Every structure is written in structure tokens, then in C-alpha cells.
Amino acid sequence: MRGDLTDAEWEIIQGLLPSERGRCVRPAKSNRLFLNGMLYVLRTGCPWRDMHERYGKWNSVYVRFRRWAEQGVWDALLETLVDLGLTDDWQHMIDSTIIRAHSQAAGAKRGTHKEGFGQSCGGFTSKIHARSDGQGRPLAFALTGGEVSDYSGADSLIDIPVTTPHCFLADKGYDSDRLREKQLFRGILPVIPPRSNRKKPIPYNLQHYKDRHCIERMFNKLKRFRRIATRYDKTRKSFLAFLHLAAVKLWLPSFVNKT
């Protein structure tokens, strides 16, 4: 079915997923079959109960998805692909995008604020903060409420353990003396346009800054997955798991094209 993993893609990630052990009367289903079911839900945005029956019982696929999310499998999978495939260390980028939350996403037990929701005039929203390499491939994510400033979600992304780039691109929403000093201390050149209220504007390389369109294109690709374009998940963990799964799907062509 369209959107399923190809043989080449499965060859790359099959060894990175935990093995599943079933009971003698109910053997565990294939990881590949269940992963394709998760990708189907991710791509179409359908409820788990409406997952295509060719992937098995929806509840079994959902339970494995949630168990892997609790175990940190999706985070580790993305980190491994980044470590293996990150060769573009010339410039990294950071940006954020706001997504609308479906009415079904409200009502988490811990409260909407703790699950990365923000209140706006149009309802609940969440903001995805992301860091990418120079080719627009996602490196890491952070999730906050939609009303949170871009700058507030930057620290966790700046501190991720990846190769130190030469340049760091961001829009004027990230313009602050502290962030600039933090980058310069690490030997990274910040390419950030100054805010309009700065008394002494700081010069920046406009030619380098034009490459920031790569991270905008990355967000566009992520939002092709309907489960990302609209948030249906109540919990932060489930939504971030889908986000990491979508990022893995964006990374796989980089490895397939090498072979």
C-alpha cells in the first residue's frame, strides 16, 4: 500500500527496533507489518480504530506504538539515524511552527498545559520547535504551547549532542545577546537578523540566511502527514512519537540513495 516501507527502507531500520516476543498461543506479529500500520495512521490521520485491517488488529498496533513511545524507541531511532547520516555540518537551522489541535485532543488527565497545549482565540494550539541540518533533515524536536515564544524553546535544541556546525541560522525571533554569546562561545557563527527594536543592529550574512528555506520545506514535508498537520493526540508523548516517526521517514531516503 502507498506509504508502506520499501524493502530497502526496512533493511535499514529493522535491526534498530526491539524484538517482540508473543505467547505460545498468540505469537507476536511482524514489526514491519505493525510499523506500516503506524505509518498508515500517521499519513492519513485516521483514528486507530479505523486503521486498515491489512495491518492486523488496531489495538495490537496501538499498544506496541505506545509501549515503544514509553520505552523511548522512537527518540532513539531518530538519534541513531542522525548519528549515522549527519554529514552536513556546515550549517544548522532552528525554527518553529504552530499546529491546530483537534477537539478530541483536549482532556488529558494531567491538564492541557502540561501536555504541550496553548490556548488561543481559535482554540487549542501547539508549537513544534525543530532543528535541522543544512539539507533540511530534522535533528531534534521540542513541543510547547502555541503561545510560547520561539526563543523559549531554543535551549533544548541548541544543546543536543550533534556535530558542531560552522553557522547557525534562525529568524529574528531568536535574536538575543545570550543566545548569540552561547553560539560564539562554541565557535559557531550565528546568522540571525536583528530585531527592529535593537539600538545597534548586528550585521549578519544575508547569503547564508537565504538557505533557511530548507527548514521551512522540512516543516512542509512533515505536515504532509495528517497526524502532524493536526494534533489528535492528547498526550505529549504520543504526539512526539508520531513526530519522530515522521522524521525517520524523511531520513530514510538519504540512506537508500547511498546504496
Rank of each mutant, 00 (worst) to 15 (best):
D233K: 02
H208F: 12
P253M: 04
G134V: 07
V162C: 02
R231W: 07
S152T: 13
F242T: 02
W90V: 14
P190M: 09
S254E: 14
L189K: 10
R2W: 04
P161L: 02
R227V: 04
L42A: 12
D89Y: 05
C214L: 12
R212A: 03
I202A: 04
Y55D: 04
N59T: 13
L250T: 05
R224D: 11
P165G: 01
G122V: 09
I215R: 07
Q91F: 11
D133T: 00
Y204T: 03
K182W: 09
L179T: 05
W90E: 14
A28P: 06
G122Q: 10
S132G: 03
D83A: 14
P190T: 09
T144S: 13
E9A: 11
A101C: 15
D75T: 06
R21G: 02
G85D: 04
R32E: 15
T163V: 13
V148E: 10
Q207I: 09
G123W: 11
S156E: 12
H52N: 12
I99T: 07
D89Q: 09
L157N: 05
D233G: 02
R226D: 05
S60K: 10
W68L: 03
L222Q: 09
I158P: 03
K223H: 00
I12F: 07
N31E: 00
D155I: 10
G134R: 07
R66P: 02
G134A: 08
F185R: 14
I215V: 15
I192P: 00
S103I: 06
K258C: 14
N31T: 00
L5E: 05
M1I: 12
Y40H: 15
T6C: 02
D88W: 11
T112W: 08
E53V: 15
D171H: 10
R66Y: 06
R231D: 08
D177A: 14
T235P: 08
I98G: 04
T87Q: 12
L245Q: 08
Q135P: 05
H113L: 13
L240D: 00
K234D: 02
R43I: 03
D233I: 03
Q71N: 13
D155K: 14
K109M: 05
R236C: 01
L222A: 08
K258Q: 13
G118S: 08
Q104H: 07
T163I: 12
D89L: 10
P165Y: 01
L206V: 14
C24F: 09
R231Q: 06
W251N: 02
G187V: 02
L86R: 15
Y40F: 15
N59F: 12
M38I: 14
M1E: 11
P190Y: 06
G123E: 09
C167V: 09
S120A: 13
F219I: 05
R26S: 10
G56R: 02
S60H: 10
P193W: 04
D83R: 15
R180C: 09
Q207E: 13
A106Q: 06
G56A: 02
N31Q: 01
S149H: 14
Y55K: 03
C167F: 15
M1G: 13
K258A: 15
D95I: 05
D89T: 13
E70V: 07
P138Q: 04
G145F: 03
A8F: 02
Q104W: 05
A76F: 02
R43Q: 15
G45I: 00
K249A: 11
D159L: 12
C24N: 11
G134K: 06
Q104I: 12
Y209A: 03
K221W: 15
T6Q: 01
